[in-house]
Simulated scan of single mutants.
Amino acid sequence: MTAKVIYAYPWDVVGDPAAPERLARLGADTVALAASYHSVRAATPFHPAHRLVEARPALYVPVRTGSWGRLVPAAPTWTAPDAFVRAADALRAAGLAVQAWTIVTHNSHLGTAHPSLAVRNAFGDRYPYALCPSHPDVVDYCRTLVREIAELGAPDGLVLEACGPLGVRHLGTHEKTAGADWTPAQLDLLSLCFCAVCAPRYPEGTRERVRAGVDTASPSVEAALGDLAPVVRELRGALGRDLQHALRLEAAGLPVTLHANPDPWAAGAFSRVSAAPSADVLVANCWDDPASGIARLRGLRALAAPGTRVGASVLALPPATLTPETLDAYRSAGADEIHVYHAGLASRSRLAAIAGTLRSLGAGTGHDACPNIARPGVP
């Protein structure tokens, strides 16, 4: 049976009594609800009190300052400080499971306040939205983040995003980088971190080769680095692997879903993973063309340990159109779960498309598939 997960923000639910039932009628099993999140300007098409939310990086369970070390997350002022807890309670009352969607190293508030802990490329440019997990203070923050969400949020599971080093790819702050026409290889090279901890770990000459590879449009990272590529690749891979393992230990036995990428140079929301990664579910980004999504799914399946599930993250927002045919292709490629982004941002017609497409997956544990599930206020 294919599990069905829909994504939402806590402010989609808090203050909107109709939201839990609206999400339940989509036919999903589970809501991946943001427990920590980066900055965003989000539409709220159905909320009775507003139509837009301007959110900054924040934690949506209470921030107990005594629990944190050097890095302390911000509490939201645009919604309740315990918005995750309130929203989760309302969603469970509607019969839905709730997983804590946790953004790990993507935090412009903390990266700006602590620039020495942010990723820095080979040219010396800092990425203030990207905390580098080579720093012990960053790892301590990430471990505390998961521990606090598990304890205070009491979720049914964790969904970890940006669980590893981030790179140059970033959608935010009026992004104006597309005109440079950087190739995927150039973007990967610009994503290698040369902060005070990372730089000394690389072999001599790595920085110079990276800079030359960017400026000469090297066809691949391997071509730019030459004989240094295996060492650099392993050093980068260890950052994500060690962080993922550490956070699995902090999950207090909760099921862990990891937004993952089989690409050995991946540095983004879907983090690079190695063989037998520390997660119960590996979710691939299937937001672009189906062929690329299928390749990522198959790559994750090849890396997954026996018993590990693989999921496809699909886009229900512009420019994508969610169709049963696309989901069938992903299921045929090995997807055990479908993760739909994003129910809170979707219009009425897009919600109808989500519901229709999830219904095409057949019987599950969502409300449309199990009409006998009791729902408050619904006969």
Score class of each variant (00 low, 15 high):
51 R>L: 10
300 L>A: 03
20 P>M: 04
133 P>D: 05
137 D>A: 15
167 G>P: 04
185 A>W: 01
306 P>D: 05
287 W>T: 05
123 F>E: 11
288 D>N: 13
93 A>Y: 03
21 E>G: 12
116 S>K: 12
239 L>M: 12
67 S>R: 15
52 L>V: 13
12 D>Q: 03
178 A>W: 14
329 A>H: 09
298 R>L: 01
74 A>K: 06
301 R>K: 14
127 Y>F: 14
124 G>D: 04
303 L>G: 02
245 H>R: 15
231 V>K: 07
337 E>H: 08
123 F>W: 10
126 R>W: 03
325 E>Q: 12
107 N>V: 08
101 W>K: 08
370 C>R: 14
356 G>F: 05
190 L>M: 12
120 R>M: 11
180 A>H: 13
56 R>N: 12
213 G>H: 06
177 T>S: 13
336 D>E: 11
354 I>K: 02
90 A>M: 11
152 L>I: 12
126 R>P: 07
212 A>L: 13
205 G>V: 10
333 A>W: 06
212 A>T: 15
43 A>P: 12
308 T>S: 05
292 S>M: 11
363 A>C: 06
127 Y>L: 13
330 Y>M: 10
320 A>Q: 04
45 P>D: 03
88 A>T: 03
192 L>G: 01
54 E>P: 00
38 H>R: 13
320 A>N: 11
82 D>M: 10
8 A>L: 11
256 V>D: 04
357 T>G: 05
163 C>D: 05
32 A>G: 14
157 G>F: 05
309 R>C: 10
13 V>G: 01
174 H>L: 13
188 D>N: 12
223 A>N: 10
325 E>M: 08
290 P>S: 08
53 V>H: 02
53 V>G: 00
9 Y>P: 02
262 P>K: 01
128 P>L: 15
122 A>R: 02
295 A>M: 08
30 T>M: 07
14 V>E: 02
217 A>R: 14
214 V>L: 04
180 A>E: 14
342 H>S: 14
378 V>S: 09
245 H>G: 12
358 L>W: 01
178 A>Y: 13
312 A>Q: 03
92 R>Q: 04
296 R>Y: 03
250 E>Y: 12
366 G>Y: 02
249 L>S: 12
256 V>S: 07
338 I>E: 00
2 T>I: 15
375 R>N: 03
63 V>R: 04
212 A>Y: 09
255 P>Y: 09
352 A>S: 13
18 A>K: 12
47 H>P: 02
70 R>W: 04
73 P>W: 00
50 H>L: 10
111 G>H: 01
83 A>Q: 02
316 A>V: 10
157 G>R: 10
231 V>M: 04
333 A>N: 03
123 F>I: 07
373 I>W: 06
325 E>F: 01
348 R>E: 15
376 P>K: 05
129 Y>T: 09
317 L>R: 07
370 C>T: 15
282 L>V: 03
37 Y>R: 02
286 C>F: 06
1 M>I: 10
37 Y>S: 05
345 L>D: 09
312 A>H: 07
258 L>G: 00
8 A>D: 05
330 Y>D: 03
170 H>C: 08
13 V>I: 15
188 D>W: 07
357 T>P: 01
218 S>W: 11
15 G>M: 04
148 E>C: 07
59 L>P: 01
75 A>K: 06
355 A>W: 08
368 D>S: 10
84 F>L: 02
57 P>V: 04
233 R>E: 14
296 R>A: 13
288 D>H: 14
259 H>K: 09
33 L>K: 02
